[in-house]
Design a protein around this nucleic acid. Structure first.
Lengths: 221, 221
DNA sequence: TCTCGTCAAGAGCACTGCTCTCGTAGACTC
DNA sequence: GAGTCTACGAGAGCAGTGCTCTTGACGAGA
């Protein structure tokens, strides 16, 4: 019976893909608060209500875009990693890939690392894709040495490592999380214009910081 | 009210203040994208068009709120600084004050450090207040030792220091900027829910990271 | 006192998210 | 192949939005 349904399913999948592509285009051009279902429908030759057959609400569309963005960024990070290279080099390559993806897809980066959409609750589906970048970075630092932590912090970091399914030591996990917040902070500052007029372009600033971070995490060659 | 003999100017200033207070309330409760001029007018007993006498557009209102937020955060940072204390301690206190302000005023923090409002161009007026926190941190690190930088980076950092009107060495400036991106990154992660379910509460994580940052910046006891 | 500028009010335009109903054409069942 | 079901797009409509324009009143300065 599934065989007979395929054409319908295919058409539906294609429509969903087309809607998301158009939504991404509008996101890029007009920003998230100017992304409207009516606009998407209009430029697809649909009537507005037809969109609701595929996405029951604007939030559902946003959720789909958010999951896609997490996946795309996660994939970029995974592809940039070369398990054969020295760990400090792997770290730097992945971080640069994250920044490159963010600069190439600013609207989608803001969607996932900018202010949360107000009134919007991220459903469970986003949790998995959201951790892909963290997983890559944690894997690279898996053999980094431990360092002392307070009991509370040690438990939080052990839990975090467990959630990422990694045998990394709690102390190393803490350093990875700290470093990741700085990487994300730098990318956000650059993207959100906090560096405007001062640190432009930010390539050297970012690369130098990332290299130092690798050392701080404990990936020294 | 019991106000009499108020000049036009005073009445106008009071109305503006009242509008901003109500707008902040709506911002806190419903998020930025649910902040509407009509809503503000309604809960003030105004008719919608009356608001436009005070703020010619929604963006103008947002700009006012953004400037106020930068100023409030800057003031919190400045008040937290105790010039008589050891520098590492000053650094930690200011960072903790920034986080505390952000946790107490999440909506306003997101307004200034979250995704830029699409289609909204920050006017010149926001530049001054925006630098107050950076200025406090830079002042604390003013005597930190220099470190080697590439020529490009050195120029950018010299310019940044000049913009902040500080005699800080370029290498120290670079470390301050890096550290500040991490502080902001941590606060953003916490506020935007990236730590959810893993690092909660984040007090110890933040305090430990900030203490290490002070050392990395070169504020060792 | 009189003029002028500021103010709130209200109607109105174009837009939004979302809901409902209604034919129809295609997918599945027998 | 005929018949049933259902997913689909069209269209109207509701309540809300930002913003504009006009109108009338009222208070402050000349």
């Amino acid at each position: 019976m599934a065989e007979h349904r395929t054409t319908r399913h295919q058409a539906r999948a294609a429509a969903i893909r087309q809607i998301k592509d158009e939504a991404r285009r509008q996101l890029r051009e007009d920003g998230v608060h100017n992304l409207s279902l009516r606009g998407v429908a209009r430029s697809m030759g649909f009537v507005s209500s037809a969109i609701y057959r595929y996405f029951p609400s604007r939030d559902e569309l946003l959720t789909a875009l958010i999951i896609d963005a997490y996946d795309a960024l996660g994939e970029a990070a995974e592809q940039a990693d070369d398990p054969g290279a020295p760990r400090a080099q792997r770290w730097a390559r992945v971080c640069r890939a994250v920044r490159a993806w963010a600069l190439a897809n600013p609207a989608e980066y803001m969607l996932i690392y900018g202010s949360p959409i107000p009134g919007y609750q991220a459903p469970r589906d986003t949790v998995g894709p959201a951790t892909r970048v963290a997983k890559v970075l944690t894997t690279i630092a898996e053999d980094a040495p431990d360092s002392p932590l307070s009991p509370t912090l040690a438990k939080q970091m052990t839990d975090t490592a467990a959630a990422l399914d990694s045998p990394i030591a709690p102390g190393a996990m803490a350093r990875v999380v700290r470093a990741w917040t700085q990487v994300s902070g730098m990318v956000s500052f650059e993207l959100f214009g906090q560096f405007r007029g001062a640190i432009e372009p930010a390539d050297e600033f970012f690369d130098a910081a990332v290299a130092d971070l690798a050392e701080q995490v404990g990936l020294g060659s």
